[in-house]
């Protein structure tokens, strides 16, 4: 289990607010100056980021003044992290390799990760799910799915 005190996260949010303030002001310094009676590209983001930084710092300070020891907890953190990596790999490779090949592999791996059932059943569940999505999206509604190397 992974756990993090909420006050640390709030502190991170405060730092994020300050960092965003800095970034927005530095980046927007190069925005072109507005013509007469125009808002200019930098004004609105600057107003918003100032408000954002103020409230972020407020959150960080009030959270740190309290002595609360509340934490966020992520159970099975390694599995969650693995699922994140799997999902990212699936999302990035989808266009290259294709929906039909990649999806059953992705679903099977996820089901194994979550100890769904015996391997054969996992594979069958993955194939059925993939087939169902393919039929509804591609055949029924003619929505293009990533074709990848197979070309369909």
């Amino acid at each position: 289990m992974f756990s993090l005190k909420i006050r640390w996260l709030d502190l991170l949010i405060g730092i994020l607010g300050a960092a965003l303030l800095l970034i927005v002001f530095i980046v927007s310094a190069s925005f072109p100056a507005p013509h007469q009676a125009q808002l200019g590209a930098s004004v609105f983001p600057r107003i918003i980021v100032i408000l954002l930084a103020v409230i972020a710092l407020y959150i960080a300070f009030t959270s740190f003044r309290k002595t609360s020891t509340d934490s966020i907890e992520i159970h099975n953190a390694s599995k969650v992290a693995l699922s994140f990596i799997l999902l990212f790999a699936y999302g990035l490779l989808l266009k290259k390799i294709g929906f039909v090949i990649l999806t059953p592999i992705f679903i099977t791996l996820l089901l194994v990760l979550m100890k769904f059932s015996r391997i054969l059943l996992n594979v069958i569940a993955a194939l059925v799910t993939t087939g169902a999505i393919y039929v509804v999206f591609r055949l029924f509604l003619s929505v293009p799915l990533p074709e990848g190397i197979l070309g369909f």
Binding site: S83, L87, Y90, G91, L94, F99, T103, F106, I107, L110, L111, M114, F116, A125, A126, T129, T130, I133, F137, L145
Partner: peptide, 12 residues
Amino acid sequence: LITTLIFVLAII
């Protein structure tokens, strides 16, 4: 199964 279905539908 619902969890995996949501993942795939979210991506697609």
